[in-house]
Amino acid sequence: MKTFIHLKDAELSYGSKKVLDRLNLEIREGEVLAIIGPNGAGKSTLIDVILGLKKLDRGTVVRSLDDLKGAIGVQFQTPTFFPGLGAYDNVKLFAAVNGKAASREEIEEVLEQCHLQDAARTDAYRLSGGQQKRLAIAIALIHRPRLLILDEPTAALDPSARSEIKSMIASLAESGISVVFTSHDMSEVKRLADRIAFIMNGRVRAEGTLDELLASHGTDDLDELYALMLEKGRVRV
């Protein structure tokens, strides 16, 4: 399996606070990687580093993607869109800034993929929280990226909206797009992830498939494993 991005001994501090501390992580082609960990663990900073938005103090990021800008699609925690424009126009605008003159069919296809066809003309500002998250994912998908990065795609959503987004991520992964997502929802992680990386205090504390992680920590439940890792992390600190 080809490695898209490889972080080696990544270190980054904000003032005296070390946010990433000798962090090692691989992002591989064709897999769904879940990054989990408590608030303030460094997940969003890690995403910024992966995207090249933040520079490391020490360590390296090796990217094997030929064209980073064209190859990655991102959904940030706060849905990104232009108020005053409908879902259709927002997707069209972000396609244009990515140098793609998206046809009507392409935009409608992405909107359908994200279950937004009925909201195509509704001002993005008036969409529900779930619809805004799906719009952010549609915007991330319009230039057909090979790697999709989703920062807490289901946070602050009701169960029905969460379920819709989970199904969407599953179908995107089935279509061959590599996905990296952060989450606090262990049921979502269990359902979607091929590999899980648990991050705490800026380090990867555990990494592997669900079965590998459960077996190595002698537990049969991800929630229990999460609690165990939190406890271990606190002891180490």
Binding site: L53, L68, F76, T78, T80, F81, F82, F94
Partner: peptide
């Protein structure tokens, strides 16, 4: 400021269009 807070400029930095042109 609204676009800053929504992360629009972060997303634009990852796009092919230079922010200055935007």
């Amino acid at each position: 400021m609204t676009q800053h807070r929504r992360g629009v400029f972060k997303l634009l930095k990852l796009s092919r269009l230079p922010i200055s042109q935007f």
